[in-house]
């Protein structure tokens, strides 16, 4: 009797354990983002931002978060483990380049544009290093299917339009393939490389160069050079050459050449349309959001 009851209990426990572990397995664990409530009494905004009638609504619709978390995954795109890894990358970036970095994902964008959301999120929370609030915010906007980066303070100069363009172009495909973690991680790598190079000075090709195409290119050059050198070396072994001219027997003083005239017999003019393509790499274009803080930035659909 006792044994039977024990048996049934054991079975239930076993079943529960299996069920729980099954659920655990199929659903990745997501950490929730803690948000605080803003009110007209306490806007929870950084010092130096004036609340006006025009930006009041912007402030109130911006989530108030803990600026030390750095990853605000409202759209649940990353697992806990992935968040951990990203956070390590982000902290390394912040320590090394003295610029703030935050990653935000949203399913619903309650503002007019990814740009506005990103700017407000950055401005009305306590992001940024130093007086100019140097830093970057990277937004994955699932509603508009756009990735957007906004730059503030020194980051505006560091990431000119060309660099922003390149960074986003390089990673947006990952987002299209739903590999949000990989895209974000690569994005941080690229902006780190740029920061490592310093302010734009025409050296950007070093970051943008694909290792594979560089190898291919150098291989082709090396192959051509090798062939030329080998031809020279091989020709050193060939000491027999048929003479087809009699240069050495020519009596220079006997040469008399008279010009009997040159006549134009044909003229042909061809024209080609010149394609004026825009040059990249120039400066950073800026805009300012509702807070009045100046930002650079750019986006790319996915």
């Amino acid at each position: 009797m006792y044994c039977a009851i024990y048996d049934i209990r054991m079975k239930r426990i076993k079943f529960l354990i299996i069920l729980l572990s099954f659920i655990f397995l199929i659903t990745p664990v997501y950490a929730s983002t803690n948000t605080k409530q803003r009110s007209e009494n306490d806007y929870l905004i950084p010092n130096g931002i004036e609340v006006t009638e025009t930006n009041k609504n912007n402030i109130l619709t911006t989530p108030a978060i803990d600026e030390t978390e750095k990853i605000y995954d409202f759209a649940n795109l990353f697992s806990d483990y992935e968040e951990e890894k990203l956070l390590r990358q982000i902290n390394t970036y912040i320590d090394q380049y003295k610029m703030d970095l935050a990653v935000v994902t949203v399913n619903e964008n309650n503002k007019n544009s990814p740009q506005e959301y990103a700017d407000d999120f950055y401005d009305y929370n306590h992001f940024g290093k130093g007086n100019n609030r140097d830093g970057i915010l990277f937004l994955i906007d699932m509603q508009n299917r756009e990735i957007y980066m906004t730059t503030t303070g020194n980051a505006i100069r560091m990431y000119n339009d060309h660099r922003i363009d390149f960074s986003l172009k390089k990673v947006y495909k990952n987002m299209t393939n739903k590999d949000y973690y990989k895209g974000t991680s690569e994005y941080i790598e690229i902006i780190s490389k740029y920061a490592n190079l310093g302010l734009p000075s025409g050296q950007d090709r070093r970051v943008e160069k694909d290792i594979l195409s560089t190898l291919l290119f150098s291989s082709i050059i090396s192959l051509i050079i090798t062939i030329i050198i080998m031809i020279i070396l091989i020709s050193k072994n060939k000491l027999v050459n048929k003479q087809e001219t009699a240069e050495q027997y020519l009596q220079k003083e006997s040469i008399q050449i008279n010009d009997l005239g040159n006549t134009l017999i044909n003229s042909n003019t061809v024209r080609h349309y010149i394609d004026h393509d825009t040059s990249s790499g120039g400066g950073s274009s800026t805009h300012s959001g509702s807070s009045g803080i100046s930002h650079g930035g750019g986006g790319h659909g996915f």
Binding site: A246, Y249, Q251, S254, L264
Partner: peptide, 24 residues
């Protein structure tokens, strides 16, 4: 500002030539 032009002029050049070779 819009086009690149390439003009090819073909000339006919006549020469009268005279020279000696010694012990070819």
């Amino acid at each position: 500002s819009h086009y690149q032009y390439t003009k090819t002029d073909t000339y006919l050049s006549k020469r009268n030539s005279h020279m000696n070779f010694e012990k070819v």
